[in-house]
Amino acid sequence: MYYLIITIFLLFFLWISTVLDHPSRNFLDFRDYPGKILNHPKPFDGRFPPPPPPHRNEPMPFGFIGSPPTQYGHTTLVYLIGVVSSLLFAISGRLQSVEKEKVKSELAFLKAQINPHFLFNTLNSIYALALKKDNKTADAVVQLSELMRYIMTNSNDEVIELSKEINYINNFISLQKTRLGNTVNVDYNVTGNTFGKVITPLILISFIENAFKYGVNPDQTSEICVKIDIDDEMLNLYVSNKKTFSVQSDSGIGLHNTIERLKLVYPNKHHLKIEDSLEKYIVNLSVKIR
């Protein structure tokens, strides 16, 4: 169907070219016009005669008098240029559409890996509280329900209000404090105004979760620092934890996925610096938020 339409339009343009380019319908030929044009003398009044016709035995000079082959060739060439240009625009648009769908698929895949990872860790924490018959178990369940409600309702959004993301982090850290008690010193502070600002959901939590996952050991003094500073269009996240000998496996799936999401969602709009020393693990992240 596509090639049939292309052929029909080509024949149509060739017919139009034949009609418009016929010498008797040359709209730009003013040699026989009796009056003046724009206050100028009659064109071709003898001072600028038209080129002489070719000799009967000489070949027709190219460009002075059109002939069907030349006429059709020019029309076909212009038409093909238009067709190729339209194809290039269509292919370019298709490639951009495919790239957007690819980014969406990658983000959905990364989120699908992050969410169960976080859920399993938190359920294990509440399970530990239940085994000890801690009175804080009920509060932990409520906090977990708020966290999961946020994940279920907002994680698939491209952006979310920054205030909701900060509230999500507040609930997460409160839940961790409830689980860990006095075994860890948590220095958590948020400064700046969140009003009117948005951010990609779940883009910060993996760095904070990583500190609690690998920076806490009941047999050692654990220290975790989380600072969030919001300055105009920039959000600065600082997370540090004292390294401990954790018994958890070092898979790093959540952290790796978050780094990949940052590259996809905030290309050239974020700066991430990770310091991994013998004693501390420090994350400095700056994100340009809208």
Score class of each variant (00 low, 15 high):
186 V>C: 00
223 E>C: 05
139 D>S: 12
20 L>Q: 12
204 L>N: 04
79 Y>R: 06
89 F>L: 14
37 I>G: 00
70 T>I: 15
64 F>L: 12
84 V>T: 13
61 P>I: 07
64 F>K: 10
72 Y>H: 14
165 E>M: 05
78 V>I: 14
70 T>Y: 13
117 H>G: 04
81 I>C: 01
227 K>M: 06
267 P>M: 02
259 I>H: 04
114 I>Y: 01
24 S>P: 04
117 H>D: 10
239 V>D: 08
282 I>H: 00
182 N>G: 03
108 A>N: 07
94 R>G: 15
262 L>K: 02
60 M>D: 11
165 E>A: 00
9 F>G: 03
239 V>F: 09
184 V>H: 01
289 I>N: 02
237 L>P: 11
122 T>D: 04
185 N>M: 06
219 D>N: 15
194 T>Y: 12
7 T>Y: 06
88 L>F: 14
4 L>G: 08
10 L>R: 00
100 K>F: 03
165 E>P: 04
2 Y>N: 07
92 S>T: 10
216 V>R: 01
275 E>H: 10
144 L>W: 10
36 K>W: 02
178 T>M: 12
115 N>H: 09
186 V>R: 01
246 S>G: 05
164 K>M: 07
166 I>E: 07
134 D>N: 08
175 L>F: 02
271 H>Q: 15
11 L>S: 09
279 E>A: 07
45 D>V: 09
14 L>I: 12
44 F>E: 12
194 T>C: 09
60 M>G: 04
113 Q>R: 08
225 C>P: 02
238 Y>D: 14
120 F>L: 09
9 F>Y: 14
281 Y>G: 01
115 N>K: 15
290 R>G: 07
161 E>K: 06
290 R>M: 06
183 T>H: 03
204 L>P: 08
264 L>Y: 10
163 S>W: 10
161 E>F: 09
111 K>G: 11
221 T>L: 13
114 I>V: 12
212 F>L: 05
117 H>T: 02
96 Q>C: 02
236 N>A: 11
139 D>F: 06
132 K>R: 13
242 K>M: 06
155 S>G: 09
286 S>N: 11
254 G>D: 00
63 G>K: 09
102 K>D: 12
203 I>V: 15
147 L>E: 01
223 E>W: 00
226 V>E: 01
221 T>M: 13
179 R>M: 00
22 H>I: 06
194 T>D: 08
43 P>E: 07
195 F>G: 02
46 G>R: 03
50 P>S: 15
166 I>Q: 01
34 P>T: 01
237 L>I: 11
180 L>E: 03
290 R>V: 06
145 S>F: 05
286 S>T: 11
248 Q>A: 13
261 R>D: 05
256 H>V: 10
52 P>Y: 03
284 N>Y: 13
232 D>Q: 09
171 N>T: 03
71 Q>M: 12
122 T>L: 11
128 A>H: 04
193 N>R: 09
241 N>I: 03
241 N>R: 05
53 P>Y: 08
248 Q>C: 07
281 Y>H: 13
11 L>W: 09
192 G>L: 05
